Amino acid sequence: MIKILLADDHPVIRAAIKMMLKGKFRTVLEASNGVETVQMAREQGPDLIVLDITMPKLDGMEVLSRLKDLEPPCRTLVYTALDPVFYSARCMRSGALGFISKTNDLEELSKAINAVMSGYTYFPRLPSSSVHMDHLQCTEMQLIDKLSDRELTIFQALARGSSNKEIAESMLLSHKTVSTYKTRLIEKLNVKSAVHLRDLAKRNHVI
C-alpha cells in the first residue's frame, strides 16, 4: 500500500480528498502549509504528494523547488485553483509529474493520481494562446510568462490585495525584499503603478 501526503491549507479540501482515497493507500498524511509539507516529505518519505500552490509560509512553487533536492525524490501532483495557462508548464519544469485544476471533479484527480503512480505524467492540454486573444492580451501574457516563479507568486498576492508585510510574512521574506519585487514587477509588466497590477491580473486570469 502507498503512502500519500495531502498538502493544502483548506481542511475541507483535504477531508474530501482523504475520503476519496479511503482504502486505497496505507497512510494518508496531511500538511497545511509549505514548511510543514517540506518537513513531512523529508521525515516521512511519501510515495506521492498532492500539492496546492497557494499555501502559507512557503508557496507551492518554492516547495517544488525544495523537493527536487530530496533523496529519494517524491512524486508530486499539483492540485490547485490557479490558472494552468501560467502554472502547468512551470510546475512541470519544477519537477511536478501532473497538474489538475480544482475546477475539475475529484474523479479527474483520482485519474491523475493513478497515472502518476503508474509512471506517467498528467498535464492539461492547453489551447494556443494566440488564436482567441487580441494583440494586447497576448503581449501581456507573454510578459507574465517571463516572470520568475517567485515574481509570479508575489504578483498574484499583490493583485489580491495583500500588503507587503503580509506577503513578507507568508513567504518568509523581508519587507524590503518584497518592496523590491513590487518595483520590479511594475517595471517588467509595463504598468504605471501597483494599482494597475490587479487589473492586469484579472484581465489575464492570474487571480
Rank of each mutant, 00 (worst) to 15 (best):
I2F: 04
K3W: 03
I4G: 02
L6V: 03
A7H: 02
H10R: 01
K18S: 14
M19D: 14
L21H: 05
K22V: 05
K24V: 06
R26C: 10
A31Q: 01
V35M: 04
V38M: 04
V38Q: 05
Q39T: 13
L48F: 08
L58C: 03
L64R: 01
S65W: 06
L67E: 10
K68Q: 04
L70C: 09
P73G: 11
R75A: 14
T76A: 06
L77G: 03
A89T: 10
A89I: 10
R93E: 15
A112K: 00
I113Q: 05
I113D: 10
V116W: 10
M117N: 08
S118Q: 05
G119I: 06
Y122F: 15
R125V: 15
L126A: 09
S129V: 14
L136I: 11
L136A: 11
Q137Y: 08
T139F: 11
T139I: 12
M141G: 14
M141W: 04
L147G: 12
L147H: 12
R150P: 02
R150D: 14
E151T: 07
T153F: 02
F155R: 01
A157G: 03
A157I: 01
E169V: 03
L173C: 01
S174G: 15
K176D: 13
K176Y: 12
K182V: 06
K188V: 13
N190G: 06
V191I: 15
L197H: 10
K202S: 13
K202Q: 11
H205F: 14
V206R: 02
